[in-house]
Each structure stands twice: as C-alpha cells, then as structure tokens.
Amino acid sequence: VQAAGWPSKTYPPWAEAVDPWLSWSDPDVLMRAVELDRQTLRDVAPSMVINDCRIPMVIAALAEGIQFATICQDNQVPGYCYDGSTIPATWTLPVDAINKVLALLEIDPIADDARWLFARGTMAVPSTAELEPIVGPYVEELDIVHTGLLNKQASTSGSRAADLLFYRTAGSADEEFLAAFADWNGSIYIATGETMVGAAPGEPSRGRVQIGTLWDLDAIGPGLRAVVHHGGHGTTLRCIAEGIPAVVLPGPNPERTANGERAERLGRAIVMHA
C-alpha cells in the first residue's frame, strides 16, 4: 500500500492489542471497536468497505449504511462445520455480544452463527471456484463471488528450484533448526511474519539462512523447491496455484489444518501435526 502511494491508517495501540478471536464475545470491547471503525468510516467516507472478516467493521458498515464485501474462504461461510455438524465456537461465542450491539444500533439481530454478519454483504473468495469450491446448506441464498487468483503466476525454474522458505513457522534460526537443515543445498529464507516474533529485522544472516519479516514471493518464488508454512489461506492457495510443494504445520488451528489437508488431498503438501 505504501509503495503504491495510497493513503493508509493504522489502528491505535489499544485496538491493535485486542485479539479479535477472543474478544468479540465481550460486548464492551466489541462496542468500543465498532465505534472506532464507525469513526474511521466517517473520516474516510468510502463508497464501499472491503474487510477481512472483521466483525466490528461489518457492524460499523451496516450502521453507516455503507456497502461492504468480506474476504472469505469456505469456513467463513455460514453453516460450515469442520466436523460436518458442529458450528465452531469461534462463530457461536460472540453471537450474544453481537446481538447486544446490533440492538443498540437498531439493526436486526443475527441467528446462532456470527458468520451471518458477513452474509449481509458480498462474500468475496480470493480464488477460483475450481480450486476452492464453496459448499454448504445456505450457499444458494448468499452473495458469494470468486475473484479469481489475486497473484500473477511466477515463472518457475522447475526442477532447478532449490530454495526453501519458512513462512511464519520459525521465529529464529536456533541450533536445532540449523542442525536439521545443514544439508539443504539451496538458500533458506525465514519469514517471521511479525517484527515482534523472534528475529528482529536485520538479524545477521547465518550462512545460507536469511531472516526477514516477509519475503516477496514474486522475487524468490521461482527459486523455491518448497515452502514450510502454517496453513494460512493465502499461503496455502498460492503454493497450490504456483505448483510449490509444501510441508504444512498448522498447530492447533482447525482452519489451517483444513487448508493443509485440502492441499494434501491435491497431492501438493504434507501436513504434520504437533
């Protein structure tokens, strides 16, 4: 965004510190976040809001009467269940708080799944219907749009690709890490993802291991033999789309586990559990 010269705003520290997936069930926290997002919308006066499943921003857009689209994948569509029958707690726990806030704003309440908030606007899937089919009991009544792939396809060096990227799966290069990958022939990149995680930007490279907050896949992608990543939606999709094999370490996160297992079913990844 900065490279494009577009204006940007950053959330204040108290809002950055809120863990949305744990805090939206507290009506006071949610209301404070909605008020912040409403103020942002009044400052910016957009004709449309694109959001990444941010519940208070969706409520703010509803309150301000602004059209919105939410970037989604299958598990963010109402009714999706990892096990086929149970609505994940992520989407049931905040319902009471959401409905309290909606009542204060004189907006119709939602049913027993917070994802119905996203369904009040467009649900945009940043992928193709072939790669990411959306199925579920309510799909026919929802406004779901596949955008197509968002990244240009990198030219690959195919069998000559020798490098390895760790995307948010290692925060530093410790002795165990260095010993395990000492025999890797190509370059090794570590993307910590956040400056607060492990290595600070500018940490000295350790041999062929290079550490950064993020690495540009347009630049290093063609040389990658594989990626070790955490199963996030965008990373999983991009590896599949560009033919980069992956080892997926989803930890305890069900969304990332499901993404990794989809790549595994396509024959493009191996999922390893903790």
Partner: peptide
C-alpha cells in the same frame, strides 16, 4: 483466521526436514 503461529507447537525440525524429501516435484 486466528493469527496464531505454530512456533513452539510443531514437530521436531529433523522430522520436518525428513518430510521435505517426500514432497512431489516442483511444477
């Protein structure tokens, strides 16, 4: 989704290294 990284909640790096040898070729 929830922004929790897996650092500290993962297999041993030596097991990850071994898994890399079983991946399909780069397309």
């Amino acid at each position: 989704g929830p922004a929790v990284d897996v650092t500290g909640d993962r297999p041993a790096w030596s097991d990850v290294r071994a898994a890399l040898d079983h991946l399909p070729p780069r397309l």
